[in-house]
Design a protein around this nucleic acid. Structure first.
Lengths: 188, 188
DNA sequence: TACCCGATGACAGTCACTGACATCAGCTGC
DNA sequence: GCAGCTGATGTCAGTGACTGTCATCGGGTA
């Protein structure tokens, strides 16, 4: 048997989410998270750069999924089609873990600092999408615009998904939002 | 004559921008800003909620300008036309103070925490735009999408404006970006 | 003249985050 | 099977952002 309990990161992430739900982000100290995970505060900061980051561990995997999906989109796909495919792929992942996604999102919407972190993660996703589009030969400005517009669609769709009373899939909200964006930009 | 030097906020804002430019955001302490402004650290925090906020004092004025411009757009204007008018109004203000805008932006792009704050301010602008559109009778989803898309256009245009070698006006970049968005969303 | 108010200062405290050094189970080379 | 290295963790002493509380006092007000 090994010297320490396994999966320190997993324990920290679960402890953090639990505590943020129980008492709120601000009223939870890093020492408390570490204690619940059976570790020390110092070790927390070896795994996560700050108190917020522990909620965003999965975002790099999402980023890879988006970028890969754009890269693998069929050759003739337009930039927005490639972005749409990427967002649908991401939606499928989130739909699978919808309870976790909603709990996490509830914590984030309750705290401005966490919203800031979420926004910069979304900006990073946009930058990754834009890069992937450029790799496909899309010109610089169009790549940025398609990526930013795609993230805008995602933000709106995700919010509607979490606020709905029913159980409609995230992918449907994304489809509707893309259609809505098309309609609204047509009238300029 | 009054008991204290006037314009404490202005002195703090100028001192902060200077120091952030001279030594970087992270390597500047609030005590140093306050000292250069002839005040104490405690007083700094009476004027600004945190060390970042001192760079964003003007954002509420920008928000009011955007919201007012949408509210006053001609009745038959489409949502995107109203948003475009608002962004052009904001662009004119930034163009006027372009040296200040660029210095400030240089500080922000050099630091992730400041970028986070900028993003949440932009998100607030989007929320304000969306509200103003709803007041005009635009349906909920379209209002959010037009607002978010408008902010996406603004982000791209602003970045191109600051990165350009020449002296082209921000309003031109915004016009081009709106056209680019229209082109890119048409191909879905 | 007495009083209040609002902007500031003084000071102590909490907590996020960092740097430096210590510990020690398990693997590696011999 | 032993010496030594490694990597994840612990310990401890900071620094600096931010907060609560009380004191100060020039200027306006009754």
């Amino acid at each position: 048997m090994s010297r320490w309990e396994p999966d320190a990161r997993g324990r920290l992430e679960r402890a953090a989410l639990e505590l943020y739900l129980e008492r709120g982000f601000e009223r939870t100290s890093v020492a408390e998270i570490a204690e619940r995970a059976g570790l020390t505060e110092r070790t927390f900061f070896r795994h996560y750069t700050d108190k917020r980051e522990v909620l965003f561990a999965g975002s790099s995997a999402l980023q890879e999924l988006l970028v890969d999906t754009v890269a693998r989109a069929p050759g003739p796909a337009t930039p927005m089609e490639a972005v749409a495919a990427a967002l649908q792929a991401a939606a499928a992942v989130l739909q699978e873990r919808r309870e976790h996604a909603r709990r996490r999102h509830a914590v984030i919407t309750a705290n401005a600092e966490l919203q800031e972190r979420e926004l910069i993660k979304l900006a990073a996703l946009a930058a990754g999408l834009a890069d992937a589009l450029r790799q496909r030969g899309v010109d610089d400005a169009s790549a940025s615009l398609a990526a930013e517009a795609g993230i805008a669609v995602f933000k709106v769709a995700f919010r509607r998904w979490t606020e709905q009373a029913g159980e409609k899939d995230l992918s449907e909200f994304i489809g509707e939002s893309f259609a809505g964006l098309k309609a609204v930009t047509a009238g300029t």
